[in-house]
Structures are given as structure tokens and as C-alpha cells.
Amino acid sequence: MLGIVATIAALAVANLLLGTVSIPLRSVAAILFGSDGESEIWRNIVWKSRVPQTLTALVAGAGLSISGLQMQTVFRNPLAGPSILGVSSGASLGVAFTILFSGLGGTALSRLGYAGEVALSLAAIVGAMLVMALIVYVSQKVRGNVTLLIIGVMIGYVANAVIGVLKFFSVEEDIRAYVIWGLGSFARVSGDQMTLFVSLMVLLLPLSFLLIKTQNLMLLGDGYARNLGLNVKRARLLVIASSGVLVAVVTAYCGPIMFLGLAVPHLCRGIFATSDHRVLMPASLLVGAALALACNLIARMPGFEGVLPVNSVTALVGAPVVIWVLFRRRKTELNE
């Protein structure tokens, strides 16, 4: 765990130093600690771009990984991820509505700047929350986990279908704005928005840790969990809600970030060889944060700027890593 914390620190520093413009460590430190001697341009780059990006990647990676772990535990399904229940599709739907309908009103939202950004985040949160409310309602009605999972996936399809229809009737400029939102990025959040986003996540992440014992019991399956005193329905509701809120907030500010939430829990199980959530939760939080920082760094390397969206990097870097960890794990198992 300490190793991961050190890695995070190193990656965070690298995120501040490296980019199309390289700024030496001394200057970055000086800028962060508020001395005046440094150039105005560097100061702007550090405060307006790199610090927000670093913090955003940190909390977004942590949030998505925790969310993914919770979904995998609730559904006892290794393929579950934060977006499995259609919560992020709900966010996309909210954004699609806002971008594409605003076009009908005459001014394209994509030209509104800051007000547009706030509107997008709001729309995404509203969309995601609506889908989540629906899922939570359904979760109290249906008995089986598999049924719920299928219903969640179906809701995702419906949301995507509606988005498709909306796109068809929209002007090209708006579609482009929507597509760019959909690529996902840690760089979009700035200023007050970033403060709000980071504070929200700092509040929500510890809350998810309250469900550790619940999640451990869920591993045993409904029957055993209930026999050990767990209120299975309420537990399912709480864990889905926790996971849903995390992914809703992250998606609202960063767009749909794929892969991290699915991969990080597997990575952690592989590294720590345990399914105890007292280890997996903090581990997912840290590994998620580290991986997000690493991906952000790669996506921003000179030459890639603007070419590689974060979503491509997460999968390109993450998939081989996960496969490698699973393979290594399999070998040690066979040797036992």
C-alpha cells in the first residue's frame, strides 16, 4: 500500500512537470508555494491546467475504481463495471438533451463557454440520477440479481437509442460537441467547477467505505449473507446507490471514462490476492488514482497532445496490464 502511495505521489509530481511545456521541479514548487519570481505563463499553466488536471484525475480514478468494485461485488460478476447499470448512459442522455436541444433554441450551447460547462455537468448529474432512481426502484421490486443486471443493461440501451435519435435531428456542430464530451477527459474541469468536483468526491469516497462489512458479506451470496444478519435488499440498495452516485458525479465532470472502473478491482485482487474489502477498497482507491494519473500523463505527452483521448489510453495501457496480472496469478495458482 505504501508503495502505491509513493507511486501516486511520483505520478502527481510528473503530471505537474511534464507536458508539451516542461517546467522544472524548482519552478513548479515555487509556483505552488506562492513565491513571485516565476514567469506568468508557467504560473498559468500550473495553476489553470496542470493542478486541476492532476486533482481531477486523482479523484476520478479513485471514484470510478471504487464504483466498479462495488458493482462487481453486488452482482458477483467480474464483468460488471461502473457503467453496467446504464448510469453513465443516463449522464450521456442528459448531456445529449442539453447540447442537442439548445441548438434548436438558436444559440449552440457549445459556444456558451463557462455557463455551458455548468449546464453540461448539471444535465449529466440529473440524467444519471434519474436512471439511478429508476434502478433503485427496480432493485426493490425484483428478487434476483441477474434480473436487475439485465434490466440495468436494457435501460442503458434505451438511453443510447434515444441519444441516437437526438443526434439524427441535430446540427453538425452540436453533434461534434457531444462526441467530444463523450471521449472523456480529465482536462475539461477547471476553476470553481474543479473545486466543487473535488470537494464532492472527497465527501463521497469516505462514505463508500462505510459499506465495507456489507460488501464482504455479499461475497457469500444472498442466502449466507442473510443468515449472517445482513438485510440483503437494503444492502443492495445502499451499495448500488453509493456506486451510482460516484459514477454519476465523475461522468458529469469528466465524461464517460471507460475501463478504469472495470479493470482496477481485478488488478487489486491480483496484486493483493484477497477478496476482503477492508483491503480491496483502499487498494482500489489508490490503484485507481495512480492509474488515472499515469493515463493522463501518457495522453498528454508531447506529440500525443489532442490526439489521444483518455479513454483510448486507459484501455491501451490498462488491458495488457490486467491480462498480465491475471496470467501471473493463474501460474502461481497452478504451482500451489
Binding site: 464482504n216 449472517l228 444478519g229 477478496s275 476482503d276
Partner: peptide
């Protein structure tokens, strides 16, 4: 129960320890 728990990465000792859940505290 007859349902077979699909448990990975959990030791026998940990699984037996789950039986203590009704008595353990908030973090288990």
C-alpha cells in the same frame, strides 16, 4: 446451503471467520 459460493482469493480461515460477522463490529 446447497448454493455453491463462487469465492476467489479467500482463504479457508477467512471464510470460517465470516461466521463471526453477527458479533463483529462496524468494520468486521
Amino acid at each position: 446451503l446447497t448454493e455453491k459460493c463462487d469465492l476467489h482469493n479467500m482463504t479457508v480461515e477467512e471464510l470460517v471467520g465470516m461466521g463471526r460477522s453477527p458479533y463483529t463490529g462496524f468494520w468486521g
